[in-house]
C-alpha cells in the first residue's frame, strides 16, 4: 500500500499543544464572529433598553462612586471632575472583570457542546473577549463625549502625542484579561472549588488597582510593588495620557506589556493543553 497524503491525523502523542498559528483567525473567523454575535444579541433579549445598557451601566457606576467615594469617603480625584476621573477606571476595570468572568467558565458552560462536536475550543474565549472589546469601544465613545465636554470647559490641558499610547494600552488590557480568563478556565475545568477563590481574588484585585482612587495615595515605600500590577499601569497611563497631569512611566509600561503577553501565552498554553483531555474528565 503506497503512502497517501492525509489532510489530518489524530494521535494521542502528536497532540501539539502550541499549534496556534495566524491562520487560526482566518480559518475560524466565521465561528468567532458568530459566537460574538450570539452573545451580543442574546444578552439584550427581552430587556426594554437593550444595548443602551452598555452606555448606562458605567454611567450608573460612576454615579455610585461619586456619591460613595467622592462625597462620603472623600477620596481625591486629583482635581479632575468626578465623572472624567471615575469613568476610565470603571470602563477598564469592567472590561477586565467581565472578560475574566466570561472566559473562566468556558469548559464548564460549553461541556455539552464540546462533547458533541469538534471545533478549536479556544474560539469560545476569544469570541467572549471580542464581545467585551466591542462593549469597551462603545463605552469609550461615552468617555470621549464626557471628556470633550470638560476639555471645552477648560478643566485640563489639551492632550498631545501621549494619546497614541491608547491603542497599545487596549492591546495590553485585552491580552491581560483574556490570558487571566484562559488560565482560570483551565484550572476551573479540573478543580471546581477554585471558583470561589477566583471570585475572591478578582474582588481583591479590584482594590489593588486604582479604579476608584488615584495611585498617588499609595505610600512611597509600597509603590514599586504596587506598580507591578499591569492593570495599575494601564489605568494610570490612560489617565495620564488624557489629562497630562503627571509623567508617563515608560519603564512601567514596558514591564506591564511583557507581563500581559506572558499571561496571555501562559493562558493559551494551559487552555490548549486542558482542551485535549477535558472531555474525558469534565
Amino acid at each position: 500500500m503506497h503512502k497517501k497524503p492525509w489532510d489530518w491525523e489524530i494521535e494521542a502523542s502528536a497532540a501539539r499543544v502550541f499549534s496556534f498559528q495566524p491562520a487560526f483567525f482566518r480559518n475560524n473567523k466565521d465561528l468567532l464572529l458568530r459566537f460574538a454575535r450570539r452573545d451580543l444579541v442574546a444578552s439584550y433579549q427581552q430587556t426594554i433598553l437593550g444595548p443602551v445598557w452598555i452606555f448606562l451601566q458605567p454611567l450608573l457606576t460612576t454615579l455610585v462612586y461619586y456619591i460613595v467615594f467622592g462625597k462620603i469617603v472623600r477620596l481625591s480625584t486629583e482635581g479632575l471632575p468626578a465623572v472624567v476621573f471615575y469613568l476610565p477606571g470603571i470602563i477598564l476595570w469592567n472590561f477586565f472583570s467581565d472578560c475574566v468572568m466570561e472566559t473562566m467558565y468556558t469548559f464548564i458552560k460549553n461541556a455539552h457542546v464540546f462533547n458533541k462536536v469538534y471545533f478549536p475550543r479556544i474560539v469560545v474565549p476569544f469570541s467572549a473577549a471580542l464581545v467585551q472589546l466591542v462593549r469597551l469601544l462603545i463605552q469609550l465613545v461615552v468617555f470621549l463625549l464626557v471628556y470633550a465636554y470638560y476639555l471645552w470647559q477648560g478643566y485640563y490641558p489639551v492632550p498631545g502625542v501621549t494619546l497614541l499610547l491608547i491603542p497599545l494600552l487596549l492591546i495590553m488590557q485585552t491580552a491581560l484579561a483574556l490570558g487571566t480568563g484562559l488560565v482560570m478556565s483551565a484550572v476551573l475545568a479540573k478543580y471546581r472549588d477554585m471558583e470561589n477563590i477566583f471570585h475572591f481574588l478578582l474582588r481583591l484585585f479590584m482594590f489593588a488597582t486604582p479604579v476608584f482612587y488615584a495611585a498617588s495615595i499609595i505610600p512611597p515605600q509600597l509603590r514599586w510593588f504596587y506598580w507591578f500590577n499591569p492593570l495599575t499601569v494601564i489605568i494610570e497611563t490612560w489617565r495620564a495620557a488624557f489629562f497630562s497631569w503627571k509623567d508617563i512611566h515608560y519603564n512601567y509600561i514596558a514591564l506591564a506589556f511583557v507581563e500581559s503577553m506572558l499571561v496571555l501565552l501562559a493562558g493559551i498554553w494551559l487552555f490548549q493543553k486542558r482542551a485535549l483531555t477535558v472531555i474525558d474528565t469534565i
Binding site: K4, P5, W6, D7, W8, E9, I10, E11, A12, A14, A15, V113, F114, N115, K116, V117, Y118, L276, T277, I279, D280
Partner: peptide, 28 residues
C-alpha cells in the same frame, strides 16, 4: 474519536477532508 471530540489513548487516525458531526440535533 474520528470526530476529534476526544483523543485516542493509543493508535492513530488519519483522514482526508472536512468532517461534520451529528451526535445530537441542535447542538449549540
Amino acid at each position: 474519536l474520528i470526530a476529534r471530540i476526544t483523543l485516542p489513548t493509543t493508535g492513530i487516525i488519519r483522514g482526508k477532508g472536512r468532517i461534520a458531526t451529528l451526535l445530537e440535533v441542535g447542538t449549540g
